[in-house]
Computed example of a mutant assay.
Amino acid sequence: MEEMAMSIVAVRLGCAEPPLWEEVVEYMLNVGSCIWSMRRSKANFFIIVFLFSGMISMSRRLGEVCQWKNPVTSALVHVVFSILICYPELILPTIFLYMFLVGIWNYQFRPRHPPHTDTELSWVEAVHRDELDEEFDTFPTSKPQDVVMMRYDRLRSVAGRIQTVVGDMAT
């Protein structure tokens, strides 16, 4: 059923200007996403890590302020919090001012070229030959039993590491 819907969309987008190939439409619709892939799982893991890295760095900075690692910064943050407690109507303008200043600061690091697929984030640059072979393998597999056993062992080790990370987060 998915393949039929994908082919209908591919035919329609193939007539568009500029025409899209069927492979592009298949990739965009993520047909066959039910098949497990080591590369895709690594990419998803690093996307999640990238997502939470901002919150983790903010919590580290707050911890440094609470531990007075940098006394000037800690004093400044405490003064700002005290002012915000005394004048709560300044909370929203302060947040918007902070967001504006962060936007100006990050403007210098903007990409200078047109946007494209991030090859580092999709983990396509560091993929191994065996992982690509596994991703493009048929279902059911056409590989010998020892290759399938190696893939299964690798899957168990990755699942064990994920279980350890989830356990640490739960703790």
Rank of each mutant, 00 (worst) to 15 (best):
A170F: 11
L101D: 04
P18I: 00
D133K: 01
V165D: 00
Y27H: 13
P140T: 06
F96I: 10
Y87C: 11
N30S: 06
I35K: 14
C34F: 10
S57G: 04
A16K: 08
P111E: 10
V72I: 15
S157M: 05
Q163H: 10
P111R: 10
V148P: 03
A10Y: 05
R39M: 07
K42I: 00
I35E: 08
L29G: 00
A170W: 08
P18K: 00
C15K: 10
V77M: 09
L62Y: 09
P114H: 09
L97D: 03
A126E: 12
M58D: 13
C66Q: 06
P140N: 00
R151Y: 13
N44A: 14
G63K: 02
M58N: 09
L101M: 14
R112V: 07
V147H: 12
S41K: 04
F50C: 07
L155V: 03
F100Y: 12
F52S: 05
A16C: 11
Q145W: 11
F52G: 06
L20D: 05
G103E: 05
I35D: 07
N70G: 01
M99I: 07
L76G: 06
F100M: 11
E120C: 05
D153N: 13
V9G: 00
R60H: 08
P111W: 02
L101E: 06
F52Y: 13
M169L: 15
V148S: 14
R161K: 10
A16T: 10
P115F: 03
T138R: 12
V148M: 08
K143C: 08
W68D: 08
R112L: 06
T73A: 09
L20R: 06
G14V: 02
I8G: 03
D133Q: 08
K143E: 15
E23N: 10
I56R: 09
A5R: 12
W36H: 10
V79C: 08
T94F: 15
V72R: 11
M169D: 05
S37G: 01
D118K: 01
L62G: 03
R110M: 09
V25T: 13
T141P: 15
L132M: 07
V79Y: 08
F50G: 09
W21T: 10
L97V: 13
Q108H: 07
F81C: 15
E2K: 14
E120W: 08
Q67C: 11
E125R: 12
L13H: 04
P93L: 01
Q108W: 11
V165L: 02
S122M: 06
W105E: 07
G32N: 02
V24F: 10
E89G: 08
I85H: 14
E2Q: 07
C15W: 06
G63S: 07
V77P: 00
V124Y: 04
G14E: 03
F50W: 15
F96W: 13
N70H: 12
